[in-house]
Structures are given as C-alpha cells and as structure tokens.
C-alpha cells in the first residue's frame, strides 16, 4: 500500500466527504435521482460513504412522463437492489394541480416544468438539502456554481449572493424556508465520470450503449428518439440508426448520437476524440439562447 493516489481517487474522496457533510449538516436531505449516469454515480458514491448503514436520504425522481422505459426500469431495480427509499413525483400531476400549461410543439419538453415539481416535492417533504449530479464542466453558468448552493424559498439562485467556499469547509447553515443544492461531483468532467464508471464497474441503463432505434432527424441534424411524446409530421425525415444517449433527460429534448459503442471502454475512446461537448450535442433547450442555463437556474432549475 502506498500514499500514491490517482486523480479519480481524489475526486471520489472529495465526493464522499461532501456527501457525509450533507448527512452531518442537514435534517432532511434528499438525493435527486434522474436515472442518468451522473446521478447513478452519486448513488454509488453514497453507498461508499454510508454502508453498512442505510443512506441518510431518500432518492427522489422528478418524473417528466417523457421517459425512456429502460431508465424507469433501471431506477426501480436500483432502489429495490439496495433497499433504499425511492420517492417519485410526476410533472403531470403538478401541471394538473397548478393548472400549468403543458409543453407544446413538435418536441414538447417538460424540462422547464420539472422545476415546479421539484419545488413542490421540496415543500412536501421539507427537504433542506437536495443533492444533484450537476458538473461545472457542463456549462459556463454551472462553472460558477458552489458545491453548496443556497436557494431561497422560490428555489432561486443569485450568482452575486453566493457564499464564498473556502478550503473544503461547506457552510450549509440556512434560514427557514431556504434550502441548499449540493453538487458532490462538481469537479468531475464527463470523461472523469465515464472513467469512474469503468473503474468501479457500475451498471447503466441500456440506452447509454449503442442500439438500433427509429429516430427523427431535426433540421439541425440532431437525432431524436421517436416516442409517443413527440408530434411527427408527414414531411419529417425518419431514420433507423445505431445510436446511444450521452445524457438521459426528457426524451423529447435529449438527442441521441450515432455510435457503435457497446461498452464503457468504447465510449471512453469516443469521448477522447469527441469534438462536440456534451450539452451542445444533446440538449436542444440550451441552444435557444446563450443565457438559457443562467435563466433557468435563477428560476430554481437544478
């Protein structure tokens, strides 16, 4: 045994440290679980942090209703396998309860509507901390996010009022009604997450790996899975392609990439030579404006 640690060991140590701080500092934390690789990695890290004890927080899934069935299956199996508590709340219900306008258009994305359900679930269970899998390398506004990010009662993030975060001392003290979003893998890049999944041999939903799928080709050349939630038109270009997903979001706005990669090793090879960053390749919603992410975060988005 030696004192030499690889960079993944350092990233893992930091994430476990942060998760234990959440458990130590908060009364009612929750882990936001989307079924995507980042939140799956978080669960894996949480098990390392707290086993043989139970996780000191439930897994919470904000279900847009626009799902890939493989992901929902994976989610339920994971919760059952580890015997952890899973809370699912549906955007559909929030829309009905609050009389919100559902997403419309050709690719109706409920991504923005998730915020309402998230705020509802925070209120319902009085969560004081929500752990999420966001990474700073995803996007410019994320690059400035703290690891402990304090939100007001409306879930709003004010970049000018962020608390300075010194050393690895995390100040999670909040006033009533406020809550904290916690990002234990802030310092990981997409490649780091995949390398860790490889090292730890973490199972993922099948849609992360190459499979043949019916897709619609958008005018910008992106591939979207054909599901019951998108509104096809006769002139749409339909293609059968071997694709995989790089992120797992709302099925109507998460594009697939053409890829023959069937294993984590293949994917890592692809990423090493990839020329298009993760969000740019797959998220239609960020293309709308350069400040798109900043606006959504200020409104309480994750």
């Amino acid at each position: 045994m030696s004192t030499h640690f690889d960079y993944l060991d350092h990233l893992e140590a930091q994430a476990i440290h942060i998760l234990r701080e959440v458990a130590g500092q908060f009364e009612r934390p929750a882990l936001l679980f989307s079924g995507g690789k980042d939140s799956i990695t978080l669960v894996h890290l949480a098990l390392k942090a707290f086993r043989p004890g139970k996780l000191p927080f439930p897994l919470v899934h904000i279900d847009t209703g626009h799902n890939f069935p493989e992901v929902i299956r994976y989610r339920d199996e994971l919760a059952a396998r580890f015997g952890e508590r899973l809370i699912v709340r549906h955007v559909e219900d929030t829309i009905r309860r609050q009389g919100l306008k559902d997403a419309t258009g050709k690719f109706p994305s409920r991504n923005a509507l998730q915020t309402y359900t998230l705020l509802e679930v925070i209120e319902e269970f009085e969560f004081d901390a929500c752990i999420g899998g966001a990474r700073r390398d995803e996007e410019k506004a994320r690059a400035k996010e703290r690891i402990f990010s304090v939100r007001d009662e409306f879930g709003q993030w004010d970049p000018k009022r962020q608390r300075p975060e010194l050393w690895d001392i995390y100040n999670g003290s909040i006033r009533k009604g406020e809550n904290v979003r916690v990002f234990p893998i802030s310092n990981w890049t997409e490649l780091d997450v995949w390398s860790y999944i490889q090292q730890e041999n973490i199972a993922l939903p099948e849609i992360y790996f190459s499979h043949r799928r019916n897709c619609v080709v958008t005018p910008a050349g992106q591939l979207l899975a054909i599901t019951e939630h998108i509104n096809l038109e006769p002139e749409d270009e339909i293609a059968v392609r071997d694709v995989r997903f790089r992120t797992v979001g709302d099925a109507t706005c998460t594009a697939a990439v053409e890829s023959p990669a069937t294993t984590v090793d293949d994917i890592i090879q692809e990423i090493l030579i990839a020329k298009i960053s993760e969000r740019g390749a797959t998220r239609l919603d960020d293309r709308l404006s350069e400040a798109a992410m900043e606006d959504r975060k200020k409104n309480g988005y994750f």
Partner: peptide
Amino acid sequence: GLRAEREQGITIDVAYK
C-alpha cells in the same frame, strides 16, 4: 461566464475550468 459580466466586461466571481 455570466451575463452580468458580459455586460460589464468584468469577471465577478470565481469560475472553475
């Protein structure tokens, strides 16, 4: 990164890259 900075042309917070 942030719009306020783009408008003012200065960096107002720590950004990680």
